[in-house]
């Protein structure tokens, strides 16, 4: 009954409105599709940036853990005394400069070394580096820190935290 009413209706009242509704649906569908595609792309871009930089942060963390100037009495130990000299506030300016000498000035990062018991923390930061920004990527390696003498060694973590470069 209702279908025959539509078929026999020659006033074309519904016709233009149907077009508008279908057009609106197509436009809304397309906008939703574009939003999903752009969201997926942004997520992919963020993840690939994080992945890429995590690899670099991890490499720097391993490199710093093996840096001879901060090694303790054995090559697998990190000397707390050396860390005291180059952490903030810096006591040995020359050693601090040499620590960052081989790293590119374009790379914004700082190093945080903490003992697992939370009693000690050292932050080694490049002087003149800008304020810490968002989008920080961190990579950590386990280390053993020599406190005073080789008989007093505590486990700890060496973390490299880097943030998104301004010009990328």
């Amino acid at each position: 009954m209702s279908i025959s009413l539509f078929i026999n209706d020659d006033k074309a009242f519904m016709e233009p409105h149907n077009d508008i509704i279908s057009t609106a649906l197509v436009v809304i569908g397309f906008v939703v599709f574009a939003a999903i595609v752009s969201k997926a792309y942004i997520t992919f871009d963020d993840n690939s940036f994080a992945m890429e930089n995590y690899r670099q942060a991890s490499m720097i963390a391993k490199d710093i853990a093996d840096y001879p100037e901060i090694q303790g009495s054995r090559t697998d130990l990190i000397s707390a005394e050396s860390l005291d000299r180059i952490c903030m506030p810096v006591i040995d300016q020359e050693m601090h400069e040499l620590f960052f000498q081989r790293f590119s000035g374009n790379l914004d990062f700082y190093v945080e070394i903490t003992t697992n018991d939370g009693k000690h923390q050292w932050i080694i930061e490049r002087s003149g580096s800008g304020s810490k920004q968002r989008d920080i990527i961190a990579a950590s390696v386990p280390v053993v820190i020599e406190l005073g003498s080789s008989t007093s060694c505590v486990p700890g973590t060496l973390s490299v935290r880097m943030w998104k470069n301004r010009w990328i």
């Binding site: 006033k11 074309a12 009242f13 233009p16 077009d19 057009t23 197509v26």
Partner: peptide
């Protein structure tokens, strides 16, 4: 009651929307 204006307006809107969607 012939709805010509409505028809023309809706078809024009449809054409514009199609052009915009195709361009996008």
């Amino acid at each position: 009651s012939t709805a010509w204006i409505d028809l023309i307006l809706s078809k024009t809107a449809l054409i514009f929307a199609s052009i915009i969607i195709l361009a996008a």
